[in-house]
Amino acid sequence: MRCRPCPHGDSTKNAYIEAWKRSFDYTGRSSRPDYWLFELVNIIVIVVLAVIAGKVEAIQPLVTLYTVAQIVPHLPVTVRRLRDAGKEWPWIFIGLVPVIGGIWLIVLLVMPTVAG
């Protein structure tokens, strides 16, 4: 029996790498899959690093460094995703409103692509 390759494997890796390559690019758009695959890999990396840091204390600075560094690509990919959903970049600040702001931002980020 032959195993099939994961249909999202390459696109997951490409979305993550592309977000890092475009770390300072606030122009253009990012599709829903590009945004959410970047977020998924980002969370997995942080969790894996945290688990390792729990066992090997010397790794803790690496976890902190990655957590801070991932902000650099996270902001532009979020701005591009908002633009793709038909919203302007200032909507990113809705996430600063306690409780409801984060939920509202997630709703905006899952909206379908707006043509144009």
Rank of each mutant, 00 (worst) to 15 (best):
C3I: 13
P5N: 12
H8M: 14
H8E: 14
H8F: 15
G9V: 03
D10T: 10
S11F: 09
K13Y: 13
K13C: 10
N14Y: 10
N14T: 11
N14V: 08
A15W: 10
Y16L: 01
I17A: 11
E18D: 15
E18V: 00
A19I: 04
W20R: 12
W20I: 11
R22D: 07
F24W: 14
F24D: 09
D25R: 12
D25E: 15
Y26R: 06
Y26H: 10
Y26V: 11
T27M: 11
G28N: 09
G28C: 09
R29I: 10
S31D: 07
P33C: 03
P33Q: 05
D34H: 06
Y35V: 03
Y35S: 04
W36Q: 01
L37E: 06
F38H: 02
F38C: 00
E39K: 03
L40E: 02
V41Q: 09
V41N: 08
N42E: 09
V45D: 00
V45P: 00
I46V: 15
I46Y: 05
V47Y: 03
V48M: 07
L49T: 08
V51G: 12
A53F: 05
A53Q: 06
A53L: 08
K55L: 15
K55A: 13
K55S: 13
V56M: 14
P61G: 10
L62E: 06
L62I: 10
L62W: 12
T64D: 13
L65W: 08
L65F: 13
L65I: 12
T67Y: 12
T67W: 11
V68F: 10
I71K: 08
I71D: 09
I71R: 06
V72F: 12
V72I: 15
P76K: 10
P76A: 12
V77H: 00
V77K: 00
T78K: 01
T78I: 03
T78D: 04
T78G: 02
V79Q: 09
R80G: 05
R80L: 04
D84W: 04
D84E: 07
D84Y: 02
A85G: 11
G86Y: 01
E88D: 14
E88G: 13
E88H: 09
W89S: 15
P90R: 05
P90H: 06
W91L: 13
I92Y: 08
I92A: 10
I92C: 06
F93N: 03
F93A: 12
I94V: 14
I94H: 00
G95A: 07
G95Y: 04
L96P: 09
L96V: 04
L96W: 09
V97G: 02
V97S: 02
V97T: 12
P98L: 03
V99F: 13
V99E: 09
I100C: 05
I100A: 14
I100D: 01
G101K: 08
G101H: 04
G102C: 04
I103W: 11
W104E: 00
I106E: 00
I106W: 01
I106C: 05
V107S: 01
V107H: 05
L109Q: 06
L109S: 02
M111W: 05
T113R: 15
T113S: 15
V114Q: 15
G116C: 03
G116N: 11
G116W: 05
